[in-house]
Structures are given as structure tokens and as C-alpha cells.
Nucleic acid binder design. Sequence first.
RNA 1: GUGGGCGUAGUGUAGUGGUUAACACGUCAGGUUGUGGCCCUGAAGAUCGAGGGUUCGAUCCCCUCCGCUCACCCCA
Length: 429
Amino acid sequence: MPFNAPRGTSDILPGDQPLWDHVHRTAERVARQFAYGRIDTPLFETTELFARGVGDETDIVQKEMYSFEDHGGDSITLRPEGTAAVCRAYLEHGMSNLPQPVRLFYNAPMFRYERPQAGRFRQFHQFGIEAIGDPSPQVDVEVIEMGWRFVRELGLSGVTLRINSIGDASDRPRYVKDLKAYYEKHIDSLPKVARDRLERAPLRLLDAKEPECQDLAHDAPKSLDYLSEENARHWEEFLGLLDGLKLVYPDLNYTVDHRLVRGLDYYTRTVFEIEPEDARGQSTLLAGGRYDGLMEKLGGPPTPGIGFAAGLERLILNVQRQEVPVPGPPVLDIVTVHLGEAAQARAAQLAAALRLEGLSVVNAPAGRSMKAQMRYANQASARFALIIGEREIERGVAALKPLDGGEQVEVPLEASAIAAAVSGPASTS
RNA sequence: GUGGGCGUAGUGUAGUGGUUAACACGUCAGGUUGUGGCCCUGAAGAUCGAGGGUUCGAUCCCCUCCGCUCACCCCA
């Protein structure tokens, strides 16, 4: 085999498309229902945007970006996530002059240089939404409702929501200080990998998987206990609204998890995550939170924002595991079956005319026996075979045969008549 | 970056230190004269991941590399 798709990438073949269509359509439908407008930003951005937005210290920026210098000498990076670019667009186009909050969604490929594994790829796809310009907890709940609704509308069940508040610059330093002190006290019982984390990203010790860490995390200081007065009020109000949402969505089961932290630097206050019950491996389906400080980091005025991103490959993985029924591929209306050169030409012409009538039509491969052509029509799952031979042409007719076992009929050799026959009451598909 | 598993036709698999590497599905063709699905027959399709070594001889044993995959890490 001369070439393979690059590591961590994959072809989405026609057979996979119904699944992807289902996800795309559901995403779009939910987004529209909440009045979010689609935004498409470039596949690549100035490297600096991500360094500033996502955070210099994050793994994403440090070792996972596809960066390169273009011919003009600028450093360019294939986007590893969506939020920074959307915020850039918000600032660049003066969207603060629009009614706030500005509601946006995207559905786009992202790129991260990682070792691929189940549910993790180098090119992957995210459906994400951002509500920018409104600090109210009302928006926090709106965003969570969307995420929940999206996952449920996909047909997934047994999912759970976890929420937390990780404060912001006004209270985080105090919290981190105490958290570090706590872990340093117990440093002897920490596995080696966890000790590295203590320096690099102390918050991440909380969601570590090692059993020792989990025990320690249980009794670790909680960010909720360190919230500033304002952030605490935001949190309480958020919880109240969330309970209101629960009256509408009785199946919305959420837990407050003080060990929930996020890996990107820009998150503040409310954070959340949706995952399947049989969580294994790359379990997070959808995650997000507030990023009230991000706009300033990007050089804009203080502007609150909140959003989420959902990994489409992971959602599809779960849709398949749960055997959620999805709509099938589009139906082919007609395959023309033709005998002889004159008939072949006539069939091709008729097929063109039938397409103008709005039908989907293909000609059976030329030069094959009638039997082979019929077999082709059958394998193509066509609804009808339209059979044209010398005899038919002489008489100005064609034979129209339903391939579901129905009775074959004769129709005039005219697109409009055939279209009428094909979409007549006889057809039930 | 670290560790485990695996690499045989398009796909899924079987197999053996020694003449033509097997099976299923798929593809194409045929089963007479212009009609699919089932059935039957046939054909095409594999340098047995690559390179090196052991051996009289390697798809099979050993080494290296490459690829895929799963997990860690990290995250959607």
C-alpha cells in the first residue's frame, strides 16, 4: 500500500456518513432552538492566539500543537480547540456592539498531536457553542441545558453531568496555595507521576486516576470553600436555576464534584462535564465552563463568556455502543437498465431528464447483460429499475419495475410520466 | 514521551520449518433465447507489513524497523 492516511486521522466513508449526519443534524437543530448562530473560523490561526488563550503552560500548547512557519515567516497553528478563535472573531468584528450575549456555535475539525487511542485522534471534530457577553448564571444553565439536550437528542442514555466552580483570579491563588500545602503534607503517599503534577498543575491532582490520589482528593481542600463572595453568590444562584431546570428535565442527574477541574487555563467559575456511565478510557463526551478572563488575555475589554465543546468521534462511539437507531442513507429512486447502444443513449438522456424532475437516478453500467444490470440495480438498493430495450423504444414506452417485489408496469418514455409513476401512491418508502 | 497486544487477498479469519498459502463475505462472469433478491458454478484478487539473520529451505524461529491498536499521560 503506497500511502496511508496520516496517523490519528481517518477517512469518513459513505457507509459512516449516516452516523455523522445524525450528529451534525442534531447539533444544528439544538443550536437553532436556542438561537445560536453558526460561525466558521479558519482552520489555522496565529500561534500566539493559542499560546495566550489556551495557556502557555498547558500540554496542548506545550506539546500538542501543529505549528509551522509559513513562507512569510509567520508562526501558524492548526487550531487545537475552538474557543480562542471564536473569541478572537468576537473581538475582531466588534460583536460587543451586538445585543449581548452573542450566541455562536461551530462544528469543525480540530488538531492535536497526541498518541491516538480509542476516542482520541489527531484530527477530530467538535461541536461547540459559546455565549459571550453575559455574566449571569442564567446563561450557565442555558448552556448546560443545551449540552444535556444535545446528548439526549442524539439518543444516548445513562449519561451523567458533573459540575463545579473553580473560582477565578480573585480566589484561586488562595485555594491553590492551600491545596499544594495539603498535598505536600501527604507527599510520601503520592505516586511519582502525581508529584510532578503537584508543581505543574496542582488542580489536576484532584481528578487523577491513581487510587492513592483519589483517596487523598476526597479530603483535599475544595475550591467551593474558597470562592469569593461574588463567585459564591454566582454559584448559589446557578444551583437554584439548575434545580429549576431539573423540574423540566427529570432525568437530568447531576452531581457536584469538587474534583472536577479542567485542563485549559482559561476556565473560571462554573465548569461542567458530561460523560457516559460506563466511563472508560477517553470518557468525556462534552465539557465546558466559564472563561470570564479570556477576552482580556486576548487583549480585549473584560467580557464574560461560557461555552462547551463536544467530541463528535466520542459521541459516535457511544451512539454505536448503545446501538442507537439512526436514519439510513438517502434512497436511490431509479436505476436505468438498457439493452443495446440506442437504448443506452436513450436511457442516459432520460436519466438526465428525470434528475431535473428531482429524482435520484443512475444508469446501470454499460456493456453488461441485462441480468447483471438488474443485479446492479438491486445492490444499489434502488426503488425501481427502468428497463429500456429496442422493443420499448419502438413502442415509445419503458418498463418500470419496482424492486420491492411489486408488479412491473409500462410507462411512456417521458420523464414527467415516469416521475409521476415513481412517486405515485404505490410507493411506500 | 512511556508501556502492552497485533500485522496472511477489498473485509473478516484459518494455517504449516519444505512441492500450486485455505475459508467466508465482497467483486466480476456464467447457469441459453430481454428481468434483481435465494441457490449452483467459475474467475480475478496475497511480493503471507519491510529489512536482516538462523537453516539445505522460512509466511512460520530470532533481531531491527515500520504500521495498526489499547492503556498511561493529556483531553472533547
